[in-house]
Amino acid sequence: MSVTSPVSTTAVRATGIWKVFNEGQANEVTALQDINLTVEAGEFISLIGPSGCGKSTLLRVIADLTHPTKGSAEVAGMSAADARQQQRYGMAFQQAALFDWRTVRRNVELPLELQGWSKSARAARAMELLEMVQLADFAGHRPWELSGGMQQRVAIARSLAVDPPLLLMDEPFGALDEMTRERMQNELLRIRQETGKSVIFVTHSIPEAVYLSDRVVVMSPRPGRITDIIDVNLGSRDEDTREAEAFFAGVTAVREALRGRTGGSAARARVGEV
């Protein structure tokens, strides 16, 4: 129930995943078509692509919140179902989904409570996490007394509660303004630095994907599939990174890949070399 060290060096392995909704009916949708993806331990991966291309569906298959029609997902060397049972990932959504009737601290405690942690142990752990997201002063507040960005930080703290090796994040900053968003990105990178988590991060924002990730996975819709994977080598990020040549090169490479231009791979070669 304490810190889990990754058993294998592979955080996530998706093999031949298909997801077909309403199979055999008039409204059949192929949300995922033959998805193969490996995420190494400690890696930060972004999923980007137009609305409806199956990003959330892929995340939900990895989280064992829905079953793939074909293929399988492995998390931390075990089946997605086992990984969920053993709490090997933490999840954050676009809506913070905090419980109104609990204080901020008790929201962070929720996953620990479900695991049967003692009262004092989970209170201590929750305070530790709230320190990390710089919300310790708000431990006794109710979620609805917090701004959207603060609520999202609480949700991130909650997703880290059981100290899972993997974070699955579905547009967690999607509803935030640009300034808050950049601050949250830095905070997420810092947390990831401190904890060494692997992250799969769904976003609609190209700069966000490039700024955060080691690799950007580009998807296209109908049927949802991976069209390109772009390596980003920006080294350690700081405020200047957002204005660096390499950053713009990465943005261009992802944009071209999204447009379906074959130049994607040529641009990819330039990223990190400039």
Binding site: R60, L65, R84, F93, A97, Q115
Partner: peptide, 12 residues
């Protein structure tokens, strides 16, 4: 909400 239910499911 669907999100709250998924959250609880993710916690097994």
């Amino acid at each position: 909400t669907a999100t709250s239910l998924e959250l609880m499911r993710s916690y097994a």
